Computed example of a mutant assay.
Amino acid sequence: MKLKQLLRDIFSLIRIKNLLIIAFTQCVAYYSLIIHGHIEYYNSHFISLMIGTVLIAAAGYLINDYFDVESDMVNRPEKVLIGKRFSQISVLIAYVLLNLAALITGAFTNLLVWFTFSITILALFFYSYSLKKIPLVGNLLVAALMAMTLVVLWFFQAGVDKVSFIFFVLFAFLSGLFREILKDAEDMEGDKAAGYLTFPVRFGYGLTEFLLFSILFIFIIFLIIYSWSMWLEHRWWISAYLLVTVISPAAYMLPKIFKSESITEIEKLTKLAKLIMITGTLSMLLLLI
């Protein structure tokens, strides 16, 4: 296997783009919500936290793909690498090593972070092994873990902008929950073949549409309330940014949910949901103005 192709396959297996987004999100949140724009050239504890988070996420992607081979052979056979490019044992070894490295970085940070890392590793394993097969349970767990990537930053500082911090934690949870259920709808055929009782498989796409609409509607109301609070604080630029880059695209998606039953249409919504998550994350920087 050529080195270039090997690296491309490894990056695909650990979802390098998603890992970069996780690291970027924590950096932006730390800079905007924790140290409030003050320049810190080197903070070993935060760097250890960020590296540990990325390592756990990479390990989580590995173990998820390990248990998902049967489903992925139906949903996206061209992207299956385990059993083709990489042996199962090599993936398991990499999974263990990544988690061990994460626990070491967590111990270097502090005991609370190490404990959080340990719980997260166990949660991701049981999610991949069984919980993702139970309607909504796996979705709620992943959404909660996405929110935890921000919650762990609370361990660093007492003087946090609590309103904005809670907003972005809930933003991560709700947007993550919406996208996870949307991905389950996209993967419904493969999950059904593998015997996974995800929400779309168990209740059908009709009820899934209603659930997605409800979550997105709550998400939009939540965004409007926060935007209005920023307007009342005379921070109109935050309200304007959220209206254009987050609220409007989310509102655009509402009617599309009931019109998107093909895989291609659902994929478009999944990509738009990811874009909303990124633009929402960037809005943290506006708190510094």
Rank of each mutant, 00 (worst) to 15 (best):
A59G: 13
L288H: 13
I238L: 05
I93N: 03
I278Q: 01
Y30W: 14
L211Y: 04
L62R: 01
E186K: 00
E267S: 12
C27H: 15
A123S: 12
Y41Q: 10
T116Y: 07
S164W: 07
I166D: 07
F219Q: 02
K132G: 02
Y42Q: 12
I14N: 12
M188Y: 02
A147W: 10
C27D: 15
S48M: 13
I224F: 13
L254F: 09
L286S: 06
F86P: 06
L182P: 15
T25N: 06
K84R: 12
F115V: 14
V246G: 07
L141A: 01
T116A: 10
L153H: 10
L216W: 06
F258K: 10
L170Q: 07
F203V: 06
A57L: 06
L19E: 11
G206N: 09
S248T: 04
L288T: 10
F115E: 10
S239R: 00
Y129Q: 09
F219K: 01
A144I: 09
Y61I: 00
F46W: 09
W231Y: 01
A94D: 02
V163D: 12
A240C: 06
S87T: 05
Y205C: 03
I257Y: 05
E233M: 10
Q26V: 07
K84L: 06
I238P: 03
M146V: 14
L3P: 09
D72G: 01
F24K: 00
S12N: 03
G106E: 03
I47E: 05
S164F: 04
K133D: 06
V28R: 00
Y252T: 15
I247S: 11
D72I: 04
K4C: 07
G206H: 08
S214R: 01
L20W: 15
L153V: 13
L97C: 11
L98N: 07
M73D: 04
D72P: 11
V160C: 03
A240W: 04
R202H: 09
K256D: 09
L223P: 01
F46V: 11
E78H: 12
S229I: 13
D72K: 00
L207E: 01
G138E: 00
R179K: 12
W114A: 15
A101G: 10
N64I: 07
A94W: 15
Y42T: 13
N75G: 07
A123E: 02
L207Y: 00
L145G: 05
I215R: 00
Y61A: 04
S44P: 10
M50K: 11
Y252G: 14
F155M: 10
I63W: 08
R8E: 04
I16F: 13
A23M: 08
W237K: 13
V54T: 15
A29V: 05
L141C: 07
E180Y: 05
A193K: 11
L141F: 07
F222L: 01
L131E: 02
F258T: 06
L103A: 00
F126I: 12
Y205N: 12
